[in-house]
Each structure stands twice: as structure tokens, then as C-alpha cells.
Amino acid sequence: MAQEALEAAGSYPEIDAFYDSLPDKNGALIPVLHKAQEVYGYLPKDVQLYIARKLEIPASKVFGVATFYSLFNLEKKGDYRVNVCLGTACFVRGSEGVLAEFEKELGVARTETTSDGTFTIGSIRCVGACGLAPVVMVNDKVYGRVTPDDVKHIVDEYLGKGGE
């Protein structure tokens, strides 16, 4: 069955397989949420409810954990997640100006996604590449020593690629 059909039927085989493979079921919730987000891109309500039933814990606990940690998303993100580092080293080297330029260039504010679903702007706290401050990450790629003038080039680099 196709993934969509399985989901419609309330079945999430990837979550099942991952959970069953864990040697230690204690404390499995966060690893399972990581896995679910890796598969679905975010944590839709149905997935959270399914995980609660699977792990035999209250749905409120799943929701509580999913909302506590900043890496878990409850909403769908764009194909390219632009994250500007707002750690201290980047901050004192002007990352706020870089963030403002991305907001201007893409026409959406921090935490928002462009209407075509291509970009989401966000911020991160220090990737530990302070020697290259200010730093911007697009998905897993790190850009160092970024100035507001570089923003358009970075955006253009992804615009040509379509939606992956």
C-alpha cells in the first residue's frame, strides 16, 4: 500500500518498525518523535495520537514533549529551511541584519513559510561554527561569514532547484 493510503487507514508502519527495533523501550518517546519527524517532515496530530497509543502513554504527554523541544515541528515546513544563527558570536557580528534581509527577500517573517511552500525562515542557537560568524544554515548546509549582500545569492541558489 502507498504511504498515504496506510496513513489514511491509521497505520504507520515506519513508526512501528522503528519502535520495535529499539532494544530499550524505556524513554523511547523522544527517539520515536525524531523518527516520525524524519519520515513525515513534521508531527501531525494523527501521528502524535498514534504514537501515544503505540507507546501506551497519554496523548497529552506526547503533545507536552513535542511542544517542549524546539526541534519538533507541529506544522509543515518549507522545502528549504533557512536558519540564521542568533547565537552570541553571530549576534555580535551582525546576524540580526542577515535575518532581516532574508525576511525582506522572501517576504515572510521569522518562523513563517513562503506561500509556495519553498522556504521557511527560522533561527537557531549556535551550530558551533563561531569562527565563521555570522552563520546561516539551509537544511544541513552551513554558510559562513554571511553578509546581508549574500542573502540574495543564497536564495537564488535554491530557487532554481524547484521543490527537490
Partner: peptide, 22 residues
């Protein structure tokens, strides 16, 4: 065990609660 982006988890008792899945 992978964290999920919470500064307070650097505090040892918070970290242990996180490892316990909370």
C-alpha cells in the same frame, strides 16, 4: 541519545528527565 533542542537539558537533572523520554 539525541537531544531535541532545549537549552535547559544541559542541566543534569533536566537531561535525565529528557533521557527518560519526558
Amino acid at each position: 541519545y539525541l537531544g531535541a533542542g532545549a537549552f535547559v537539558c544541559g542541566e543534569e537533572t533536566s537531561l535525565m528527565n529528557s533521557v527518560q523520554g519526558g
